[in-house]
């Protein structure tokens, strides 16, 4: 499965992720649709894997 890579200045396609939310200690979900509807900036921080040095 290949997806076209987004460039700076382009619209980010809709996406949603299952999350763990440490602020509530519960599972949650984030989506770009919700961020847009609430007028919020989003920063995605990708990192290789849990249980490795940060």
């Amino acid at each position: 499965m290949s997806t076209e890579t987004i460039q700076v200045g382009q619209a980010v396609p809709d996406f949603a992720l299952e999350t763990y939310n440490p602020a509530t200690g519960d599972f949650d979900e984030v989506s770009i649709e919700k961020q847009k509807s609430e007028g919020r900036w989003t920063a995605l921080f990708f990192y290789p894997a849990d249980f490795t040095f940060v």
Binding site: V8, A11, V12, W41, T42, L44, Y47
Partner: peptide
């Protein structure tokens, strides 16, 4: 490797990739 690189992406409130 099956893992992501250390990428950081800033998305504006209208859904545009800015940085």
């Amino acid at each position: 490797a099956g893992v992501p690189l250390r990428g950081t992406f800033l998305i504006s409130p209208d859904g545009t990739l800015m940085n």
